[in-house]
Simulated scan of single mutants.
Amino acid sequence: MLDVAGELARWAEDGRAFAVATVVAVSGSAPRGPGAALAVDGEGTVIGSVSGGCVEGAVHALCLQVLQDGEPVLERFGYSDEDAFAVGLTCGGVIDILVTPVAARGPRRETFTAALRAAARGEGVALARVVRGPAGLVGGALTVHAEEAGGVDGAALGAPDGRVAEAVAREARALLGAGRTGTVELSEDGSRCPGGLTVFVESSLPPPRMIVFGAIDFAAALVRVGKLLGHHVTVCDARPVFATRARFPEADEVVVDWPHRYLRGTETDARTVLCVLTHDAKFDVPLLRAALRLPVAYVGAMGSRRTHLDRERRLREVGVSEAELARLRSPIGLDLGDRTPEETAVSIAAEIIAVREGGTGAPLSAPDARPAAVPTGSL
């Protein structure tokens, strides 16, 4: 649901009642993963998507029904062998969708609105919802903010026992801290034992950073692709004549500084992507020496294979270990036969996604390719 937070927050601010359908579990191949959402208001207006088209019509009708009945529903959709045109996923997977009504007022609305506002502002927030358990708890919700560490208001969760709300909040904070969306099994008294409650926790974090070092034409194309992938993109170069807002209007930040000095003074985390496009030893060596010692998601450097071998030699000379060198993606990107800056940016983005998701980079049409969508858990 938080993937459509911007639009849905406006609905909440307008006082609209709406029903939101959220993918809470996926088994097999499916178009979208947990957290994908479709919302419908009383007029039938739709935002979002849960399946890319396969079951949207049925989910739309279910949202209208739930909006009228006022009761949450957990529905499973899968492929129908008996009738290929029946409601289901033609890709062969199974998705579980929780449809929750959000009335014009009440504790649940306040909880949802708080989560939507925080996500729309780019803050760290998790929304936990009970998808299986006692009838009175199903559909109950709890919002947890990244900066909060104290007690929680469990009114919208509907749990009379405060220990349950505290347990749900604790699990939500753990998933939020890891930047993960998924399900947690708890007992009805809140202890960490499977069986009583299944809670779906949806996490939303600020956009991951992409820092592009080297204000060259390839960088301009990579900035555009980085923004398309949802990154907060910074361009850094020591040369003020090249590092200008006019040359990189789509970047979130353009910084004039020595790359290694900027990297040491800026915030990075386990989701940060570092792309070194300078292919100049006086910039590359001190920068990569610092970068390869940071717990970031990706470090890639542009240059030919000859440049790469020379770069490795220089890095070893300044004390970079073999384990640290093994983290370096160089030459940067996947082999797509790219020629233009735009094509190169696509190849870099493809490698970043493959590293993040554990992909092989092989064609999905290959006989031994993994499914287009990886199982991400089931209820």
Rank of each mutant, 00 (worst) to 15 (best):
A167E: 00
D14R: 13
L74M: 13
A114T: 12
V23A: 13
T340W: 07
R105I: 05
G303N: 02
A118F: 03
V276A: 04
R289H: 15
L228T: 11
L294G: 14
A215E: 02
R32I: 05
L328W: 03
R313N: 11
V346Q: 01
P101C: 06
G337W: 02
V299E: 02
P341V: 05
R306L: 05
E71P: 08
V318P: 14
L309N: 10
R108W: 01
A118V: 01
D161M: 13
C193G: 13
A238T: 01
C275I: 00
V138S: 08
V130D: 01
L89T: 00
L116Y: 02
E324K: 09
R173T: 09
L98G: 03
T90L: 14
T198F: 06
E357G: 04
R329G: 01
G42V: 07
P31T: 06
A17E: 12
V168A: 14
C54R: 04
A128G: 05
A104S: 12
A36Y: 03
L116E: 01
A238W: 08
E317F: 05
C236D: 00
E351I: 07
G136L: 12
F200L: 08
R163K: 15
R132N: 05
V355M: 13
R370T: 15
Q68V: 14
E317G: 08
A220R: 13
E56K: 11
G93L: 06
L222A: 12
T307K: 06
V94D: 09
L328M: 12
R327G: 08
I332P: 00
L292H: 04
S27W: 04
L334E: 00
E171L: 11
V144R: 03
G28Y: 09
E56I: 11
A115K: 02
V66W: 01
L315K: 05
A118C: 03
L263K: 08
G42M: 09
V26H: 03
L62P: 03
V87P: 06
A238F: 07
D237G: 10
I47C: 14
C63Q: 09
D310A: 15
G177R: 11
E312F: 07
G133I: 07
L89G: 02
V199N: 05
C91F: 04
H145W: 10
G195I: 05
E71H: 09
F18A: 10
I216M: 10
L137M: 10
E43A: 15
G190Y: 01
M302P: 01
S347D: 04
V223N: 03
C63A: 13
A345S: 05
V318A: 07
E147N: 15
R370I: 10
M1E: 04
F248T: 01
V138K: 05
L67Q: 06
S51A: 14
S347E: 00
R327K: 15
E250T: 06
Y298Q: 03
G92N: 11
D3I: 08
I353Y: 05
R108Y: 01
T143W: 03
G122N: 11
V40G: 01
A178I: 05
G33S: 14
V46R: 15
S29C: 12
A115Q: 02
C63G: 13
G52P: 10
L294A: 14
E312M: 09
S304W: 05
V131C: 10
I216Q: 04
E13V: 07
L364F: 12
